[in-house]
């Protein structure tokens, strides 16, 4: 803080904005503990019934969560390899068309996911017999790549390549240089990109709903389907759990990389 004095008007506006952001979340969290079958606010009593309901087998939330995690983690890990390699070759070498290549790698970000899903559906029907998980995995794998490429490039763009020379002159071979200098310094960008990519995959709805088969459903799709059938506080309970997970993830990220990586 530059100055201790603060303008009361600014303070009020700031507090209001924060309330506006947080209030709906608070409502959901509190509502998740309602004992009644209809969401009421403030709740009349306290119950963990709806939390139990999440884990009941017939609702398939748990299997949806596992599917989402498999897709999200798998696609993110694979994309880290591809995205970091792409970012490195774009930033390290000087060649014609490097900007075109960068735009190429980030283009899935700009294509509406509905169009993209339409194209993929065409391809799948041509190929035939694509398993349910693969239908979603391929889609997610492609649309989250830009987040990793962009965040890694943003770090490598200002990377001091002489550092690699310095390590080399001290006897480090190219593999050692990569793991002891390049990767540690690019890590904040890679992790930030990976987190954004994972979160994108985790709550992706549009593409998944078009590509999914009844036998392989991700959590957001499952929640959407549930919502169409009933509107009980189970949804509030599951939202509360997801908010909690996001919070934990953010705290971990803050601890290991610093959130300022996301402000770029």
């Amino acid at each position: 803080m530059r100055d201790k004095r603060s303008n009361p008007f600014c303070m009020i506006v700031a507090v209001l904005i924060m309330l506006f952001l947080v209030a709906p979340l608070v409502v959901i969290v509190i509502a998740s503990f309602t004992p009644t079958a209809l969401i009421t606010f403030p709740p009349k009593g306290f119950s963990l019934e709806w939390y139990g309901n999440i884990f009941s087998k017939s609702n398939n939330f748990v299997s949806g969560l596992l599917n989402s995690l498999k897709i999200g983690l798998g696609a993110t890990v694979l994309d880290i390899f591809i995205g970091v390699t792409a970012a490195l070759s774009i930033c390290r070498y000087d060649f014609k068309g490097k900007n075109i290549l960068l735009n190429y790698f980030t283009s899935p970000m700009y294509v509406p996911s509905v169009c993209f899903a339409f194209v993929l559906l065409q391809v799948y029907s041509q190929v035939g017999r694509v398993p349910g998980w693969a239908r979603i995995f391929i889609g997610h794998f492609i649309i989250i790549l830009p987040y990793i490429v962009r965040n890694t490039v943003s770090v490598l763009h200002v990377f001091n390549w002489t550092l690699e020379d310095a390590a080399t002159s001290l006897g480090a071979n190219p593999v050692q240089v990569f793991f002891k200098v390049t990767i540690p310094l690019a890590k904040p960008g890679i992790l930030a990109g990976a987190l954004l990519a994972f979160l994108y995959s985790f709550d992706e709805v549009a593409l998944s709903s078009l590509l999914s088969t009844p036998r392989f459903v991700t959590l957001p799709i499952r929640i959407m389907n549930y919502m169409e059938m009933s509107f009980d506080p189970t949804l509030a309970a599951i939202s509360t759990l997801l908010i909690l997970c996001s919070l934990i993830l953010m705290l971990l990220m803050e601890k290991f990389v610093g959130l300022d990586m996301f402000m770029r």
Binding site: D165, A167, S169, P184, L185
Partner: peptide, 13 residues
């Protein structure tokens, strides 16, 4: 060959 770089090139991490 040891080299001292004009911009130092110290490892920031």
């Amino acid at each position: 060959i040891g080299i001292f770089f004009q911009n130092y090139a110290l490892f920031p991490h």
